[in-house]
Measured scan of single mutants.
Amino acid sequence: IGSLMYASIFGNVSAIIQRLYSGTARYHTQMLRVREFIRFHQIPNPLRQRLEEYFQHAWSYTNGIDMNAVLKGFPECLQADICLHLNRSLLQHCKPFRGATKGCLRALAMKFKTTHAPPGDTLVHAGDLLTALYFISRGSIEILRGDVVVAILGKNDIFGEPLNLYARPGKSNGDVRALTYCDLHKIHRDDLLEVLDMYPEFSDHFWSSLEITFNLRDTNMIPGSPGSTELEGGFSRQRKRKLSFRRRTDKDTEQPGEVSALGPGRAGAGPSSRGRPGGPWGESPSSGPSSPESSEDEGPGRSSSPLRLVPFSSPRPPGEPPGGEPLMEDCEKSSDTCNPLSGAFSGVSNIFSFWGDSRGRQYQELPRCPAPTPSLLNIPLSSPGRRPRGDVESRLDALQRQLNRLETRLSADMATVLQLLQRQMTLVPPAYSAVTTPGPGPTSTSPLLPVSPLPTLTLDSLSQVSQFMACEELPPGAPELPQEGPTRRLSLPGQLGALTSQPLHRHGSDPG
């Protein structure tokens, strides 16, 4: 009997000691992992102490058991019943959930998450997105703005933001810190809205009876308010094209079509300037034949640059190039080494500058006005007194259609001029006259002087055409309008007829 009692007592005591040691061994194993994590990542002392304290409290609170892992091991129907039991206190005593059906309560219970916070733990920081609604079931918390405590909340209090009033989550206007050990039930806004969409009859009752104890939403960050730039940057990543407008005076608003859609830094370009900076079609017209890549860069430059609305530039004389043409100036200075066709295309550029300027006046029909002061630039669209967005969009579309028509007509005119030049060069190729044979009589004449090349004649003739079109064909006081194609086609051969009437002889060394 004594040996039996000794064996039973010894066996029970050893089993008890073994169970104690097993729990202690698990605790030390998990604690060792936490300390190894702290050492590996070199976490500083204040945060390291918070980690160790939280682990110790969580171990004593749950005995080292992962409740979520245990809950996920059950089937979904059983999980709903378990969640309904775990959140029964909240669902029974909170006013917004009263009167809900059994199915609605089960769906809500599945969406709730339980959070346990030790003292000093910050649940929400200032500036964080308010993605959830919090219900306090135990403990107390404090809300701070800077170093000032603005509120202390306790059991059955609710904090967050009214989700039904805002389409997008706002930002917190303060820090939420736990004063004691707290148990909180939180539900994400997407989950709550999903359940309320499934039960629309409960939705009206819920929003009407929901009383948020403390609204954390920062009202200064609401979209459309003066301080909402940061919020707009976070939620409006896919922005449309940006529009900046110059201020319109009362006198300017009476004149229709007073602005032109141009790229940034293009205030001095012609009315047909689009795409790359520098001139019509993204580059100076005089350098068009020598740089074919300008047409390839036109599309990307047009689509990537934001639109700006600026006044037209001052008018340019008909014979003056659009500006920024070092290529043609070098050719004029060193005409001995340049291609003979460069002079002809220089005359073509003069005609283009004249036609572009006159067509700009035809479509816009307003006098040039000086540029406004820099303080009046970049007025935002949302400022008071601005035109409605639809009106601005319609004006932009009208300007775009005008620019497209202008570009089409300029292309047709350019093709006409090039065809005339090619026809003239085919009839009378460039050549130098040879020395004529002296006559049989004693009164022999001296050799004839060489005839100037055709490109120079073409430049003079085209300059005469531009001056003739600019000065004589337009009646005084009438708006400057571009001439039609047949009129220009008839004027060019008439001007060139006198020049080509002389018999030109080919030089023996000319390969053409």
Rank of each mutant, 00 (worst) to 15 (best):
D128M: 01
L193C: 06
S272G: 12
G323A: 14
G356V: 09
M414K: 01
S172D: 01
H205V: 10
G497N: 05
G494S: 10
P162V: 03
T408Y: 06
E407M: 06
I351L: 12
I187Y: 02
L163P: 12
G268P: 12
T500R: 11
P380D: 08
L179V: 10
G323E: 03
P430E: 08
P447A: 11
N173F: 08
S313F: 12
G323V: 10
S209L: 07
R145W: 05
A434W: 10
S433A: 11
E258H: 04
I351T: 14
R138H: 06
K240A: 13
F352M: 07
S303T: 05
L504T: 07
M425A: 09
I222F: 12
L196H: 03
A132N: 10
G324R: 09
L474A: 06
G227P: 09
L406Q: 04
P340I: 13
D204H: 12
T426W: 14
E365C: 04
D197F: 08
S444G: 08
L399M: 15
G441A: 11
A478F: 13
L406C: 05
M414S: 07
D252Y: 12
P321G: 03
N173L: 11
R389C: 04
A478P: 10
S466I: 08
I136F: 01
R247P: 13
P271C: 09
F352Y: 14
D191C: 03
Q422Y: 09
P476C: 06
S284M: 05
P326I: 14
L210P: 01
D191A: 03
L179W: 02
G347N: 07
F206R: 02
G227K: 10
L410Y: 03
N156T: 08
E194T: 07
L504N: 11
E211K: 09
N404L: 11
R423Y: 05
Y363N: 08
Q362R: 09
A269V: 12
M414T: 13
R168C: 08
N378S: 14
A398R: 09
D510G: 08
L231S: 11
R308K: 12
L492C: 14
E258C: 13
G257L: 11
S244D: 15
F312T: 10
P430I: 15
E194S: 06
S273I: 14
G270P: 06
G265H: 11
S382R: 15
R359E: 08
L481E: 06
T373H: 14
F214M: 12
S382D: 05
V392D: 03
F354P: 08
L399F: 10
R316S: 09
R266I: 11
R401G: 10
M221D: 10
T458K: 13
F135D: 02
P321R: 10
L377H: 12
D250L: 12
K333P: 08
L327E: 07
S375E: 06
S353D: 05
P440V: 10
L210K: 01
G257W: 04
F354C: 08
Y199A: 03
Q502G: 11
G234H: 12
L403D: 03
A267V: 12
A261H: 10
P430K: 05
D147P: 13
A478D: 15
L179M: 12
D197M: 06
P442R: 09
K242H: 08
D460M: 12
L130A: 03
M425W: 03
S446P: 07
T219L: 10
F235Y: 11
R177Q: 04
K171V: 08
F214C: 08
Y432T: 13
D413C: 01
D252I: 08
T443P: 15
G154Y: 11
G234P: 11
V465R: 11
S452F: 09
S228Q: 13
P300Y: 01
P162N: 08
Y363V: 08
E365N: 15
D460W: 04
P317H: 09
S228F: 12
G227F: 09
Y181W: 05
P317A: 07
P442A: 09
D336I: 09
S394R: 08
V465A: 06
R239M: 09
T437N: 12
I152Y: 04
E480D: 15
K251A: 13
S463L: 11
E161R: 02
T416Y: 01
L133T: 04
T229D: 12
E329H: 15
T219M: 12
P340C: 04
Q464K: 04
S303I: 08
L420E: 05
P374Q: 08
G170K: 01
P486M: 15
P292Q: 15
G160Q: 02
Q422A: 09
F135R: 02
N173T: 08
L165P: 10
E258D: 08
S273C: 01
T500I: 13
P280R: 15
V259S: 13
L165Y: 15
A261W: 13
A267P: 06
S290L: 04
G508F: 06
T213M: 05
S291F: 15
S452D: 09
S305H: 01
T443W: 10
G347R: 11
V417P: 04
L153P: 01
D157P: 01
P311R: 10
Y181L: 05
E320C: 10
L130G: 02
E211L: 03
E254L: 09
I141C: 15
L481Y: 15
S452W: 14
L457P: 01
S272Q: 04
D336Q: 10
A478H: 09
T458M: 12
R239E: 12
R368N: 11
L184V: 12
M221T: 12
I351N: 07
